[in-house]
Amino acid sequence: MMAAILVIEGLAILLLGLLVVGLLRSNAEITRSLHQLGISDHNGSVTGAPRPLPRLTSGSAEDIMGQSLQGSAVQVGVTGHEGQTLLAFLSTGCSACIGLWEGLQDNGRPITVGGARLVVVTKGAEAESPSRLTQLAPPGVTLVQSTEAWDSYGVPVSPYFVLVDGSNGSIVGEGSAISWEQVRSLLGQALADVSMIRTDRMPDGELRADAELRKAGIGPGHPSLYPDRPPISE
């Protein structure tokens, strides 16, 4: 009888031990994720100020290919042009995304974030709720469903944001935030840096207006630049 009790107690202790190990492992995973998001301080306690995540190892962006909300084939170009694009990786199943979905419109119009083109990227239809997505996505907002984009950008968590400078196809900032104010704060520095670098110049430094005039055959001294001056007779 005593032996049986000891065996039962031993099994109970073993099970409790396994439970404790499981809990500790789960806690470690959560802590590591929070650290990756930059929302924990050195003591390990959570703070409310998100910080940028490390850049992707490649540092280069890719165009987004996927499907629209209506199921059509879509490609959104984020490289090869001068503008910046803010990719907002949101999900229908993410409770932290709710405020961001609701804030995509301001007074019935899509919001702007520092002059960057805003593109919402969700996972593919196989991983999202189509009916919920229809409810959440306001009209006028560019939205692409692409699990491939989540993979290629290495999105670790949702919500997550990546700012791309199209002029050189580079990722100039990325991180997580739970409000558009935080996004603007998080990416404000990157946006400011890009906008300071970006001027109305061609890649070779020539002013765009000068380049366009030159292409049209209008250079310094061209008569069309001086409409009040009488034409020079030969």
């Binding site: 165009d63 290919m65 629209s68 209506q70 059509s72 084939a73 879509v74 490609q75 959104v76 170009g77 984020v78 490289t79 090869g80 042009h81 199209g166 196809g169």
Partner: peptide
């Protein structure tokens, strides 16, 4: 990009969509 029996190579940096009106 391919849909609706139409296939095209979208150049890098371009936007494209094939949809049904």
């Amino acid at each position: 990009m391919r849909s609706e029996g139409i296939e095209v190579d979208v150049p890098q940096g371009w936007d494209g969509e094939i949809y049904r009106r």
